[in-house]
Simulated assay, not measured.
Amino acid sequence: MSVNNKKIVFIDRDGVINFDSPQYIKNEDEFVFIPGSAEAFGLLKDNGFETIIITNQSVIGRKMVTSEGLEKIFSKMRTGIIESGGRILDIFFCPHVPEDKCGCRKPEPGLLNMAKEKYSVDMSGAYMIGDTAKDMLAAERAGVGRKILVRTGSGVKTLDKIKSGELNTPDYIADDLMAAVKWVISDGTGLI
Rank of each mutant, 00 (worst) to 15 (best):
E140T: 14
F92S: 09
I73E: 05
D187L: 01
L43V: 12
K101H: 14
V32G: 01
A139G: 15
V59S: 15
I34T: 07
D12A: 02
F49G: 06
L191V: 15
Y172P: 00
G190C: 10
G48M: 09
L191W: 09
S67R: 07
V144M: 04
I54P: 04
K182C: 00
D100L: 12
G15S: 14
L70K: 04
E71K: 14
C94E: 06
D187V: 04
I148T: 05
S75H: 09
G61T: 04
N18V: 09
N4R: 13
D160Y: 06
M64H: 01
E28Y: 05
E50V: 00
K182Q: 02
E83D: 06
Q57E: 00
C102R: 01
L111Q: 10
V97F: 00
D187N: 13
D176H: 11
K118N: 09
T158G: 02
I11M: 12
Q23F: 14
Y119F: 12
C94H: 06
I11F: 04
S124H: 11
I11K: 02
I8A: 07
S67A: 03
P109F: 09
A126M: 09
K7T: 14
I73T: 05
T66Q: 11
H96D: 12
G110P: 03
L43Y: 06
M64A: 11
L191Y: 14
V59Y: 06
V181E: 08
A142R: 03
S154A: 15
S58K: 13
K7N: 14
R151Q: 15
V16H: 02
G86H: 05
A133P: 05
N18T: 06
V32F: 01
A133V: 10
E117S: 13
D122G: 05
L112E: 08
K134H: 15
G42R: 07
L89C: 04
S58H: 08
A38V: 08
T152V: 09
L137K: 13
L159S: 08
K147I: 10
G125K: 05
P98L: 05
E99F: 10
K163N: 14
G61M: 04
E108R: 11
R146P: 02
L44A: 10
A180K: 01
N47T: 01
G80C: 11
L89G: 05
R78S: 04
G86V: 06
T51C: 03
G153C: 03
K101R: 14
D175Y: 02
N168I: 00
D100G: 07
K106T: 11
K101W: 02
M1A: 13
P22L: 12
I34W: 05
